[in-house]
Amino acid sequence: MDEKQWIVLNQALAAGEPVERSAHIARIAAMTQWARAEVETAANALLASALLTTTPHGLLELTDTGKAVASKRRVSRQFAPTRREVRRGRRGMR
Rank of each mutant, 00 (worst) to 15 (best):
V75R: 15
W34V: 03
R84P: 00
D64C: 00
D2A: 03
E38F: 00
A68G: 02
V19C: 10
P81N: 14
A50T: 13
L9P: 06
L13N: 06
R77D: 05
Q78E: 07
E20Q: 14
R83P: 12
L46P: 04
A37T: 15
Q78Y: 07
V86K: 11
H24D: 07
A48M: 01
V8D: 08
A48R: 02
A35G: 08
V86Y: 08
T53E: 14
V69P: 03
A70F: 01
V69L: 04
A14P: 12
H57R: 11
A26K: 12
W6S: 08
A48T: 01
M93W: 05
T82C: 10
Q5Y: 05
A35R: 14
S49M: 04
S22I: 03
R94L: 15
E61F: 04
R91G: 15
V39H: 11
A29Y: 02
A23E: 12
A45F: 13
E20N: 12
R87V: 13
E3M: 09
F79P: 10
A23D: 10
N10I: 02
R90N: 11
E61C: 11
E40V: 05
A12T: 09
K72G: 09
M1F: 11
Q11V: 08
R87Q: 13
E85V: 03
G16A: 02
A42H: 14
A35I: 10
Q33N: 14
A42F: 11
T41S: 15
S22Q: 12
G58C: 13
V8G: 00
A48I: 02
Q33T: 07
R94K: 15
A15M: 05
T41K: 13
R36Y: 03
D64L: 00
A23M: 02
G66E: 05
R84W: 10
S49L: 04
E20G: 04
L13H: 01
D2H: 02
A42G: 12
G89P: 05
T54S: 09
P81F: 08
W34G: 05
I25R: 09
R94H: 15
V19Y: 03
R21I: 14
T41I: 03
G16K: 01
S22E: 13
T65I: 02
G16V: 06
H57M: 13
A45R: 15
A42E: 13
V19G: 10
S71D: 10
R84A: 12
N10F: 07
A14H: 15
A30M: 00
W6Y: 05
T53K: 11
T53H: 04
A42M: 11
P81C: 12
V8F: 15
M93E: 11
L13I: 06
R84M: 09
R83E: 12
G16F: 01
A14Y: 14
T32K: 11
G92C: 04
A43E: 08
Q11G: 09
I7W: 06
R90H: 10
A45I: 03
I25A: 08
A15I: 06
R88I: 13
R84K: 07
P56N: 01
E85W: 12
T55M: 01
R84Y: 06
A48H: 02
Q11L: 08
V19S: 11
R77W: 01
E20V: 00
H57D: 14
G58T: 12
E3G: 09
R88T: 10
A30T: 08
A43C: 14
S76H: 08
L62E: 09
L51W: 03
M93H: 07
T41N: 14
K4D: 02
L60S: 00
L52D: 04
K72A: 13
E38M: 02
Q5G: 04
D64W: 01
